[in-house]
């Protein structure tokens, strides 16, 4: 029965992926992509990747979907693509080559070693020394903490890039368009009701991350989504990007991470090492410091380049 569900999932995933890439209508393609993200989350659950399922549900189908929806509506390409400007005689070689790459990869899947190499035993053996119970959090914040630090920096680099795309008169201004809605309409109502729930869930997902699936990133995504909801309903406006508090909040998390890293030099003998007995508190401290920075950077990445001056 499990195999049947997996097969069904696989077929649906492929159908939706094909739909997403081939559909004529831009909006339909994006809708397909959002649905596809939700299905991917199911696939991750089937592959025992609950942490990834959370991330996929939050990012793949949530934030990326919103990003693409916004883009589609601003580009006004909801009309049909209007024929293919691509050279149609190159479609056949493109299809053949893509199929060849796909086929080669499939052969690789079956050529993987019979006894799969794995680091699970290493992680299991060292999990106790990290004092957290979620092995993925242990990898993310102890064994390979550098990658997590870099991940936070990647987001900031992308934000620098996005901001650099504002037009000169609007540099330093407010990102995104001013949103309006009926003050007593259903949207404003949703934007008042949903965020408290979302914030509680976000905080819970963040807090539970040390021992169970979850963590700062998934929590921050939920918080960012709730912030955006309030903005979309016009209940609040995005802050101008020249604000010092905003910029300090953006970099505070990564800087705190680096500071804790250097603290480890003194107390535990290596950069990004933690002294025994303080591992879990320090890991939670880092996650807590990253949470607001990540929430802001995710929200701001979705809002895009500044499009307006400082006045609301």
């Amino acid at each position: 029965m499990m195999t049947f569900v997996n097969l069904l999932l696989a077929v649906l995933l492929l159908a939706l992926a094909a739909w997403t890439t081939l559909a004529r209508n831009m909006f339909a393609a994006v809708v397909g992509f959002i649905a596809y993200g939700a299905l991917l989350a199911l696939a991750w659950v089937q592959l025992s990747g609950i942490d990834i399922a959370l991330t996929e549900a939050a990012i793949g189908s949530g934030l990326t979907g919103l990003l693409l929806l916004n883009a589609a509506s601003r580009l006004h390409v909801n009309a049909n693509a209007g024929g293919n400007t691509g050279r149609s005689r190159l479609r056949v070689p493109a299809a053949l080559l893509s199929a060849a790459v796909s086929g080669a990869l499939m052969l690789c899947v079956f050529a993987l070693p019979e006894t799969p190499p794995t680091l699970a035993p290493d992680v299991a053996a060292n999990l106790a020394s990290t004092e957290v119970r979620n092995p993925i959090t242990a990898v993310l914040l102890a064994f390979r903490a550098m990658d997590t630090l870099l991940e936070a920096i990647v987001l900031l680099f992308a934000l620098i890039g996005v901001w650099s795309l504002s037009s000169d008169p609007h540099w330093g201004g407010r990102p995104g368009l001013r949103q309006y809605s009926e003050p007593n309409g259903i949207l404003a109502y949703t934007a008042r009701v949903l965020p408290p729930i979302g914030i509680v869930v976000g905080a819970y997902i963040f807090w539970t991350g040390a021992d169970y699936p979850g963590g700062k990133f998934q929590g921050a995504t939920l918080l960012a989504a709730m912030w955006l909801l309030v903005l979309m309903a016009g209940l609040a406006d995005a802050p101008p990007i020249r604000r010092t508090w905003l910029r300090v909040a953006l970099v505070a998390g990564p800087l705190a991470f680096i500071a804790v890293g250097f603290l480890g030099l003194q107390t535990a003998g290596a950069f990004l090492a933690y002294p025994e007995g303080f591992v879990k508190p320090l890991i939670i401290a880092i996650e807590l410091a990253l949470l607001p920075s990540l929430t802001l950077v995710l929200g701001l990445l979705l809002l895009g380049a500044p499009l307006r001056g400082e006045e609301p």
Binding site: V31, N70, I205
Partner: peptide, 27 residues
């Protein structure tokens, strides 16, 4: 695996959110 409930929770919240975004963005 109880944590799957958390995934369901996240998905529920975000799909509500995406619906709102969809209404806002659809011309």
């Amino acid at each position: 695996a109880e944590a799957i409930v958390d995934v369901a929770l996240t998905l529920a919240l975000l799909s509500a959110f995406v619906s709102v975004a969809f209404v806002k963005s659809y011309p």
